[in-house]
């Protein structure tokens, strides 16, 4: 028997793309943790004598229009972006998964719980019919511009995804014999949902988590780009891109390009991690991968035998 961790490690070796994803995520998390000790300059203090300087050894990514060091700001930004995206994703997934499990469990038959489930689904329809970005800005504007409201906006926008995902999972699982058996054995609904349904339905939700953290970062930066999210001079990728907007048009590319690249690479990393979780949590695809690795090992062993024979 191979251990789960060993399998995971060898799966990463077999799919180097996924290893890249994990490396990017690790790097971004490290930057968020240690930026204050690594950054060569203060991320919020301007040096008016050194504005719009080209990338150089003193300023790796150059300086922006007011003279702040772009490298220091770009590596400090994940502190805000990552925190907002992770909190928003966690909030939406916890609420969405719980609601989705209930709605899925009580979707057939009669009674007030079933009507309530129907109402929740129609509310989700309405929520999803909104233009996402306009809805998010309106929410931030209504609740007052702050980090907490951006978190709430991300949670609101993503909740229907988890709701639907969990509901469709539960719909297929609730027809299983073991759920029926639990009912016959007199297990309460709450215990059945908690002990038997959620653990068997959770895998696709986990894959969605990582992908959604990436989307959360994109939404946070988009809100900040139009001035409805995190305010300058707090280091945040979207607001940095927005500050450099005019400079790009006149030829100074670095104030916008570097934060945008950091942002894109980060989201790319989280998508890769999500894709790897999706593959590893799918038993069929995991088996294909295991077979592929086995064949590879067998070929390597055969090659060694041939070599030894010669």
């Amino acid at each position: 028997m191979m251990s789960a961790l060993g399998f995971f490690g060898r799966a990463l070796l077999a799919r180097p793309r996924f290893a890249v994803g994990y490396a990017i995520v690790a790097l971004v998390v490290l930057a968020a943790l240690f930026a204050p000790w690594v950054a060569p300059y203060s991320p919020v203090e301007a040096n008016p004598n050194e504005f719009l300087e080209l990338p150089s050894r003193a300023h790796l990514f150059g300086t922006d229009a007011v003279g702040m060091d772009i490298f220091s700001r770009a590596i400090t930004a994940p502190r805000i972006d990552l925190t907002i995206a992770i909190l928003g994703t966690l909030l939406s997934s916890v609420v969405g998964t719980a609601l989705g499990a209930l709605v899925g469990f009580y979707s057939v038959g009669r009674g007030p719980k079933v009507w309530l489930s129907f109402a929740v689904m129609r509310a989700a329809d309405v929520l999803q019919a909104f233009p996402v970005f306009v809805f998010a800005i309106a929410l931030v504007a209504a609740l007052g511009q702050s980090i907490e409201t951006v978190v709430l906006a991300i949670a609101f926008v993503n909740m229907p995804i988890y709701l639907r995902l969990m509901r469709s999972q539960v719909l297929s699982i609730r027809a299983m014999r073991y759920v029926e058996a639990a009912k016959v054995a007199g297990v309460s609904d709450a215990t059945t949902i908690r002990r038997h349904i959620i653990p068997n339905a959770i895998a696709p939700v986990l894959a969605q988590l990582s992908i959604n953290v990436g989307w959360g970062i994109l939404l946070t930066s988009a809100l900040s780009f139009v001035g409805a999210g995190v305010r300058a001079p707090t280091p945040e990728w979207g607001s940095m891109i927005s500050m450099g907007f005019q400079n790009v048009v006149t030829g100074q590319w670095w104030p916008s390009v570097f934060p945008g690249l950091s942002l894109a690479i980060t989201v790319f990393g989280f998508s890769l991690v999500g894709a790897s979780i999706e593959m590893l949590s799918d038993p069929a695809r995991r088996q294909t991968l295991a077979q592929e690795m086995e064949r590879r090992n067998a070929r390597a062993a055969a090659r060694q035998l041939v070599k030894a024979g010669i």
Binding site: R17, G214, L218, S221, A222, F225, G238, I241, F245, V248, V249, T250, G251, W253, S256, V257, G260, L263, A264, I265, V267, F268, S271, L272, A275
Partner: peptide, 24 residues
Amino acid sequence: VYGLSAGALPDFWFALVLIFVFYT
């Protein structure tokens, strides 16, 4: 790779890069 990176690019930033290359 295209599928993953297209989903990761912020459109407003990609637009800026295109403006820089093809206009500026």
